[in-house]
């Protein structure tokens, strides 16, 4: 039945199941599954992708290696990594990177923690649950521009509602816009306001997918509600939490509209002393205020690298933890 193979390695591997007997000669046939159609279906997307994403990405890389002015694109001069080294010596870059990090942490960490708590609350049996969900998602439907303009008014020094209320309970008025911490805090509030409800709904969806008998089993094992939350809900939500952290991080690195409009009277490049200039804003400033495209392109690539490093770090961390649990 089994034809012994000359190669002992193959023979050994094939020993338990009999090796395929020599059948009739194998013909190559026209494949019946019409797989070539796959290319036709993805073509529209990839044509657009090539024109408006891939080509620009590469072009940006090229620009970042050149000294280019917006007014004279053809007169580009190759400077190697000059733009990158200049960037690393540029105090504005480090300032913007610091601001981006602070605002990112201030807006992401409380946002996701609150979203988790809200999702837990929304997961109870509620009267009018649709109302709460829709209300919570309203900020997500509000544009960055509108939200920032409204919050700029609320945080305004002389006429802002927040200062009015602070004064009413006996505090001094705060000049939110001109302080470093205060402005970054205020901008983080805008981001948090817009995204908390959205993330809460994502967590809620994941919570509802947890099988109910898991909780019943935990109840029988004598776990309190809080213990159930810690030992049943959170572990089941881990992939979702990681997902939201990654998405929020990518968003935080690119933060642009909120600081651009935060002064409340037109666009700024991040405050008088750049106290809330983010990387996105710096890049815009380099390219469209100073017309220094090479610098702007280098900043854009730096932002991408930061995202890659941070997301890669999360992935490593998640993998290591998963391994440790096993």
């Amino acid at each position: 039945m089994t034809i012994a193979s000359d190669d002992p390695r193959v023979a050994a591997a094939a020993a338990p199941p009999p090796a395929p007997p020599p059948g009739p000669p194998v013909r190559r046939r026209r494949r019946l599954t019409r797989n070539r159609w796959g290319y036709a279906y993805v073509a529209p997307f990839f044509v657009l992708f090539a024109c408006f994403s891939l080509y620009p990405f590469l072009y940006t890389a090229w620009i970042s290696l050149h000294e280019v002015r917006l007014s004279d694109i053809d007169g580009a001069e190759f400077v190697g990594l000059g733009n990158y080294t200049a960037l690393l010596q540029n105090e504005f870059f480090w300032n913007a990177a610091r601001n981006t990090l602070t605002i990112g942490v201030l807006s992401t960490v409380p946002q996701l923690a609150m979203a988790l708590g809200l999702a837990h609350l929304l997961n109870y049996k509620l009267r009018g649950r649709t109302f709460y969900r829709v209300a919570m998602l309203m900020p997500y439907a509000t544009s960055i521009a509108a939200a920032t303009l409204v919050f700029a008014q609320l945080f305004g020094h002389d006429y802002g509602l927040i200062n009015t209320l602070l004064e009413a309970v006996g505090f001094d008025r705060v000049d939110w816009e001109s302080g470093t911490w205060t402005s970054q805090f205020a901008i983080s509030v805008i981001v948090t306001w817009r995204w908390t409800g959205y993330n809460a709904l994502i967590y809620l969806a994941a919570m509802q997918a947890i099988p109910g008998d898991l909780y019943e089993a935990a109840t029988l094992d004598g776990a309190s509600r809080w213990q159930q939350f810690l030992h049943v809900t959170i572990p089941a939500l881990k992939p979702t939490i990681l997902f939201t952290i990654v998405v929020s991080t990518i968003g935080a690195v690119q933060l642009f509209g909120e600081p651009l409009l935060f002064s409340g009277n037109g666009m700024t490049s991040g405050g008088v002393s750049n106290q809330y200039q983010t990387l996105g804003l710096l890049m815009y400033d380099q390219g469209w205020t100073n017309f220094h495209l090479g610098q702007a392109a280098a900043t854009a690539w730096a932002m991408f690298l930061i995202i890659l490093v941070v997301v890669g770090g999360y992935a490593l961390l998640a993998r290591r933890r998963a391994r440790a649990e096993r």
């Binding site: 000669p25 013909r27 046939r29 494949r31 019946l32």
Partner: peptide
């Protein structure tokens, strides 16, 4: 006809439908 025939053939009636 949902799965390819790598060798041999299949006939329905007198007709070879392998392909």
């Amino acid at each position: 006809g949902l799965e390819e025939i790598d060798a041999g053939s299949i006939r329905i009636g007198d007709r070879d439908v392998s392909d």
